[in-house]
Amino acid sequence: MRHRLLAILGFQEGHLPVRYLGLPLISSRLSIEDCKLLLLKVDERLQGWGSLSLSFAARVQLLKSVIFALNIYWAMAFILPKGVLKAVEARMRKFLWQGGRDSGAVKVAWIDVCKPLEEGGQGIRRLEPLNRALMNRHLWDLIQCNKSSVWVTWIISRYLRCCSIWTVRGGGGSWSWRKILKLRHHLLGGVSYHLGSGEDIWLWHDPWHPLGPLIHRFPNGPRVVGIPLEAKVSLVIDDKGWNWPLITDIEHMDIVDRLSPLARSDMIGWKTEGGVLTTTEAYRLFQPLGQKVGWHALLRGPLRIPRNFFILWLAILERLSTLDRAWWLGLDSACVLCSTGETETHTHLFFRCEYSRGVPPDFGKGGAISSSSY
């Protein structure tokens, strides 16, 4: 029958994996071998730029725009293997510090380069937290029951017909589905439920109540209260408001005592201004903000020249190639700009050197830096 259909329709029989819109279409776990195309595209871009005389700032901009666009296209569709993400970051790190050369000193650790500007980095996002954040956006569509999404509609009909996204088990699902479910606890503390009719919200499974998912707090709740496990919140709401059955068990009375007022309609939002989970906020769930540095404002401004400000960034971090850092070459470490004989360090070059003191005081007007700033 199969061969007859192929002959009649004129189709060719294919085998997974195949490529669709540049991505592998597979039915099993995504492997490093499946992601070779992503690595090849990254290599092609970086090798093409290697022949150009690019500044550090230009390389950072290319990494943020082009290379990140390639990675995000894949990261929005798959939970990428850690080996692939590490390989892409290794290529990015090598391109930043070496360009098209085969050697070059790494001046700043990659983990520090990837910090936000306010924390003393270059604002490059780490790929693994970003991949998880993008996967959480799919979870967010499921939580909000975004029925305009074909994927959400299929997941609800396939896995969520009788349970909630918060309590469904991953057994029997695909590898990707099980991986996505492992990320849902990151969203639990940030989801805000405002109940109206309650028609699309599970009574026992969804975290609409101040106590969280009621089935976790009251495992025997359906039997004690007399409401089925598969009930929606609309079962205890009528035209006048809440309409719960009489609860005689003292422990389960907390359910009714802590109810919130009803809204006009059901709304599920994020606990931030605007109520929408953005990619940036999802990224911060996996890569929390750290301590700000006092000098980050020096690297900003409408007239900033990226190339010069990158060098200033290296100087503040004391990562310039001064002679005191080249002791292993056996060179004389004395400053060559002045006759004091002091060792060429960052502090000497910028604050003690007689040559640098001769720079006009209004040079670089608009910002000031002192040795106590870092």
Rank of each mutant, 00 (worst) to 15 (best):
W166K: 00
S197C: 13
K94W: 12
S53M: 09
L40Q: 15
G171P: 06
E281R: 15
G14I: 13
F363V: 09
H296S: 06
R29V: 01
R178H: 00
H138L: 14
A90M: 05
G10E: 00
D200Y: 13
G358E: 12
L303S: 14
I255K: 05
S28E: 10
A315P: 03
S260Y: 05
W49N: 05
M253W: 06
K240H: 14
A69H: 08
T347Q: 11
A87T: 02
S164M: 07
P116R: 02
S51K: 07
E13H: 10
D362G: 07
R126Y: 03
Q291F: 10
E44V: 08
A57M: 05
I215F: 02
H209M: 10
V224L: 02
L298W: 09
K271L: 12
A90G: 07
K41W: 08
W175Q: 07
W74R: 04
N243F: 11
S260T: 07
L30F: 03
H138W: 11
Q291I: 14
L16A: 10
R29N: 04
L235R: 15
R352F: 08
G275N: 02
D239S: 13
H138R: 12
D102I: 09
R319E: 01
L80I: 08
G358S: 14
M253D: 02
G221R: 03
K107W: 12
G212T: 01
N136K: 09
S103P: 02
L37R: 09
G48F: 04
L259M: 06
D362P: 07
L211D: 03
C163E: 14
R223Q: 13
L127V: 01
P361Q: 15
H216F: 09
V276I: 14
Q291P: 09
A334R: 14
L70C: 10
L235H: 13
A133F: 05
S372E: 09
L85G: 01
G100V: 05
